[in-house]
């Protein structure tokens, strides 16, 4: 096991929720931008450009959480418990807040 510094450990601890916060802010920003630019009317495959744009940052956040989850034990050893919970919070929160995006009326 490698010894990691306190700040690094804190970084791991907040990584999951930070990923959620980033995705949430970007999605909200893109939503406003998309409504302004008329994205809901543009179709990209099965979804409108609007829904795509809002869903993409969330997918990125979920992916990031999954990658970090797969490495947290190897990096932090016995101190991995709390950061792992943090990553799960990020993962579930992103899934949960983004789920309504697929159904609700956009603008």
């Amino acid at each position: 096991m490698r010894q990691v510094g306190g700040m690094v450990w804190l970084g791991w601890l907040i990584a999951g929720p930070t990923a959620w916060a980033g995705a949430f802010s970007v999605a909200y920003g893109l939503h406003g931008l998309g409504c302004e630019l008329g994205w809901p009317a543009l179709d990209v495959g099965p979804l409108s450009l609007q829904r795509m744009a809002i869903a993409l940052p969330s997918l990125a956040a979920i992916l990031l959480c999954l990658v970090l989850l797969s490495r947290v034990k190897a990096t932090l050893g016995p101190e991995a418990g709390l950061p792992r919970l943090g990553l799960w919070i990020g993962l579930i929160a992103t899934l949960y807040t983004m789920a309504p995006v697929l159904v609700a009326t956009s603008c």
């Binding site: 909200y28 929160a93 949960y96 807040t97 983004m98 309504p100 609700a104 009326t105 956009s106 603008c107």
Partner: peptide, 15 residues
């Protein structure tokens, strides 16, 4: 505010 934006703030409020 558009319903979609309301929806994800509503989801976060639940969460």
């Amino acid at each position: 505010i558009p319903h979609l934006a309301l929806a994800f703030f509503s989801a976060a409020s639940m969460l």
